[in-house]
């Protein structure tokens, strides 16, 4: 196996996530796209962990990222819920009160 096949797959997932986070209007969908990006980063970590034989830290950090991603989803969904309660929709385009 070539290292790059994992890295490029991870890159693809990351960029798909970027696209999704930028175009999706629904807050939940944006969070899903962010999950894509986080998982891409995880794949990267694990691939490098397998590449450098003695290094196990990549896997440890992937675990940390999973934990942090879980926290992120919890808080993120709470924010989307609050958004929905205040604007009666989860549409991010309507949350533009920071307009300059």
């Amino acid at each position: 196996m070539v290292l790059n096949q994992f890295l490029l797959l991870s890159l693809f997932l990351f960029c798909t996530g970027v696209y999704g986070a930028l175009v999706r209007r629904n807050g939940v969908l944006v969070l899903m796209s962010i999950e894509l990006m986080l998982n891409a980063a995880n794949l990267n970590l694990v691939a490098f962990s397998a590449f450098y034989k003695t290094e196990i830290s990549g896997q440890v950090f992937a675990l940390f990222v999973i934990a942090i991603a879980a926290a992120e989803v919890g808080v993120g969904l709470a924010i989307v819920l609050l958004l929905y309660r205040n604007l009666s929709s989860a549409d991010l385009d309507r949350a533009d009160s920071m307009k300059g």
């Binding site: 175009v23 944006v30 991010l92 385009d93 949350a95 533009d96 920071m98 307009k99 300059g100």
Partner: peptide, 9 residues
């Protein structure tokens, strides 16, 4: 000016 449109995305 449109940069400051308050839209996070």
């Amino acid at each position: 000016r449109k940069l400051q449109n308050g839209r996070i995305q």
